[in-house]
Each structure stands twice: as structure tokens, then as C-alpha cells.
């Protein structure tokens, strides 16, 4: 009982008064990933509205160096399991990223859309590409980050938590990645 009471107390701390605390703790994250959920940094993903279970897996993988990117490995190094959960819940609550706003090239968009449909990306990522559970939101993600990530899954330099994306990307051509990223970055 006592343990439960303490847990509840701690939980309410991090969700009420702690709201400030997590904001403060997250400030260095948002410096690169964007304060309002949309990243303005090259090759750095927007985090807003990301699925919490996916974010938790990525933070865990950074901490354990299963996903290698030195700045993130460094940031996550000393996080506890509870920290990982707190940060992933925080990320999920940030506003959804804003899609790339430009006069979209209609031909490119159509090619990207056809590829996304052909490869049934919506099977796991949902018809609106908002993701579910361990599958990330990819709608309105940064175009450069999407292209980089798809290429890394294809040549297996980015090891997924499981084998799904490596498997799926086997049959997606390198020359198709650009159009897919273009389309998804502008998806609204």
C-alpha cells in the first residue's frame, strides 16, 4: 500500500507540478527537434504527436546503443526506465508536426502517393499515416529525415527494433525513396 501511495505521489508530481520540470528537462531536446513538435533542423525528426510506444522504443534503443547516433546516445545514456516513459509520453503530447508548406509538385506528389499505396504503407502506419503503437507517425515528418531513414532501413545501416522495415524496403527501389519522402512530408 505504502509503495503504491508513493508511486501515485511521484506520478502526480511529474504530471502536475512536474509539467514544468519535464518542460525544463525537455528543453535541450526541443532545441533541435523543434519547440512546437515540428523540427527545423536538418535530418532531425519532428517529434510532435509521435506514438508514445514508438518513442519509448527509440529512446530505449538510443540508451542501449542499439540505435547509434552519438548525440542521442549521449542524451539518453543516464535516463532511467521511468525517464524514458516520461519523455515518450511528453513527446506524444506535443502538437502534430506541420506538413512542409510549399506549392507541391503535383507529378511528384502523385508518384509518391502511388508508391505509398502500392507498398501498403497504410497497413501499419494507418491510412492517415499517424502510426499506431510501435509503428511511428510519418505524416508530415521532415522530408530529409524520411529519405535518410528509408535509405538506412534499405541498406540495414539503421537496425530496426524488429525486422519489419528492413523486410518491406527490400522491394522499394532506392530511386523511389525520394518520392515517398516527398509525399509523406506534405501529407495533411
Amino acid at each position: 500500500m505504502r509503495k503504491l501511495a508513493i508511486t501515485v505521489a511521484l506520478a502526480s508530481l511529474s504530471f502536475s507540478a512536474g509539467a514544468e520540470t519535464i518542460q525544463e528537462r525537455a528543453a535541450p531536446c526541443l532545441a533541435c527537434h523543434g519547440e512546437r513538435g515540428t523540427s527545423e533542423t536538418e535530418n532531425t525528426p519532428s517529434l510532435g504527436g509521435q506514438q508514445a510506444p514508438y518513442a519509448l522504443i527509440q529512446l530505449f534503443m538510443f540508451r542501449e546503443k542499439l540505435r547509434v547516433f552519438e548525440p542521442m546516445n549521449e542524451m539518453a545514456k543516464s535516463l532511467t526506465d521511468d525517464d524514458l516513459r516520461t519523455f515518450s509520453d511528453f513527446i506524444a503530447a506535443l502538437p502534430k508536426p506541420a506538413p512542409t508548406a510549399d506549392a507541391a509538385d503535383a507529378a511528384r506528389t502523385a508518384r509518391g502517393q502511388a508508391l505509398a499505396n502500392q507498398n501498403r504503407c497504410n497497413t501499419c502506419h494507418n491510412p492517415d499515416y499517424s502510426g499506431k503503437e510501435n509503428v511511428p507517425r510519418i505524416a508530415a515528418q521532415r522530408e530529409d529525415y524520411l529519405a535518410k531513414t528509408l535509405a538506412e532501413y534499405k541498406d540495414n545501416t539503421r537496425h530496426g527494433y524488429d525486422a519489419t522495415m528492413a523486410d518491406v524496403m527490400q522491394t522499394v527501389g532506392k530511386d523511389q525513396i525520394g518520392d515517398l519522402a516527398y509525399y509523406l512530408a506534405r501529407f495533411r
Partner: peptide, 17 residues
């Protein structure tokens, strides 16, 4: 060419082998 929008899903090409 249609702008990207949720719900607009033209018949998909067959999956690559």
C-alpha cells in the same frame, strides 16, 4: 494529380514481387 489528402486512395498498383 491530386493533392495529398487522407481518404484519397486510388486503386493501388500490384505489390512488387
Amino acid at each position: 494529380a491530386s493533392p495529398p489528402a487522407a481518404g484519397a486512395a486510388p486503386a493501388a498498383q500490384p505489390l512488387p514481387p
